[in-house]
């Protein structure tokens, strides 16, 4: 995709302004039942929307001060964040909180108005299973490589990775590897693109890519692309825009993005847009949501679609943010 924006045929145009408006509208839908049913995802949703806006080149489309205020209003004494005020603290919302504050360059607000960076780090570190190295999502103990990645992501952004036993966590990831080169939710589980992203990204953050069987994994990942250009999450499953991100970013991390047909994937993601009202869906013609919108846009960014800000394939955040914080 080397053409400039305006030269692209209509079906290859990204409906940027519609997507921006769609994301801006998300917090105004209080008269819709779904708005209330999805409150347990509010902080994640803010991260998804904010990241999409930054990648679309509209970083100021959400008000910064209110964004910071909302994030801090979700924090508990423990340092962890809930999905919204009144929701229990959880790893998933805590990671989103850190990512949002990092993106709007407001991590310092944790010190001045929040419970402090160290307390956030401690909340996350306390969720590590010191015996196996993996992480729980919260005090109730569900364990999953998603939470392990979340811990690595947030703690590295905070510069607090030394609070946890990284080696043990890395050993746990190694135990999740399968003969096909992929990784599952926990040892014994089937390879799954989402979990592959979390494991490969965590190993990348830990500087332990040497543990990855790149040839075998790259081959498995590249086989996810099916007729029509979309990617699926496991063998013999349907394609889905969110896997454009999990699979593609994993391929990027192991240097094998060229093993799939990028132009066909771009066309597939663009076919999933609602060009009129904005937003991206899992497959063409389905209902849009902010989750598929961010992963669609992030996928396009990784595919060097013209006019988008570069995305960091390990963090799913603007590259400018991870460059500023981590020198990546």
């Amino acid at each position: 995709m080397s053409q400039s924006f305006t030269q692209l045929p209509e079906e290859l145009q990204l409906a940027t302004s519609a997507h921006v408006k769609y994301i801006q509208s998300l917090d105004t839908r209080k008269d819709e039942y779904d708005y209330w049913l999805t409150e347990h995802l509010r902080l994640n949703g803010l991260y998804w929307g904010l990241t999409a806006l930054h990648l679309l080149g509209h970083p100021d489309a959400l008000p910064r001060a209110e964004t910071i205020y909302f994030v801090l209003s979700c924090q508990h004494e423990s340092g962890g964040f809930g999905a919204a005020p009144g929701h229990d603290a959880h790893m998933l919302s805590t990671v989103s909180a850190v990512q949002i504050l990092a993106t709007v360059d407001a991590l310092d607000e944790l010190e001045t108005r929040g419970k402090g960076k160290a307390q956030v780090g401690q909340y996350i570190a306390n969720l590590q299973n010191r015996e196996t190295g993996t992480f729980a999502g919260d005090e109730w103990g569900e364990e999953d490589t998603r939470f392990l990645y979340g811990a690595f992501n947030a703690l590295s952004l905070l510069g607090l990775l030394d609070l946890i036993d990284v080696d043990k966590a890395v050993n746990h990831i190694a135990a999740c590897a399968n003969f096909d080169g992929g990784y599952g939710v926990n040892p014994g589980a089937e390879s799954h693109s989402g979990q592959i992203f979390t494991c490969v990204a965590a190993l990348t953050i830990a500087g332990r890519q040497d543990l990855i069987d790149k040839e075998r994994l790259g081959r498995w990942l590249s086989e996810r692309q099916i007729a029509g250009g979309g990617l699926n999450g496991r063998p013999e499953k349907k394609e889905d825009v969110c896997y454009s991100w999990w699979v593609l970013s994993s391929l990027e991390m192991i240097g094998k993005t060229h093993w799939i047909d990028k132009d066909q994937l771009i066309a597939f993601i663009l076919r999933c847009q609602d060009t009129e009202k904005g937003g991206i869906s899992d497959r063409p013609g389905d209902m849009v949501d902010v989750w598929h919108t961010v992963f669609g846009v992030a996928g396009l960014s990784l595919l060097r679609y013209p006019g988008l800000q570069p995305v960091d394939e390990v963090y799913c955040m603007p590259k400018s943010t991870t460059a500023r914080l981590l020198g990546r």
Partner: peptide, 15 residues
């Protein structure tokens, strides 16, 4: 983060 709860999968786009 990889939490799919609440996202729309396979629901036809309507007006």
């Amino acid at each position: 983060m990889a939490d799919q709860g609440g996202s729309q999968h396979g629901i036809a786009r309507t007006s």
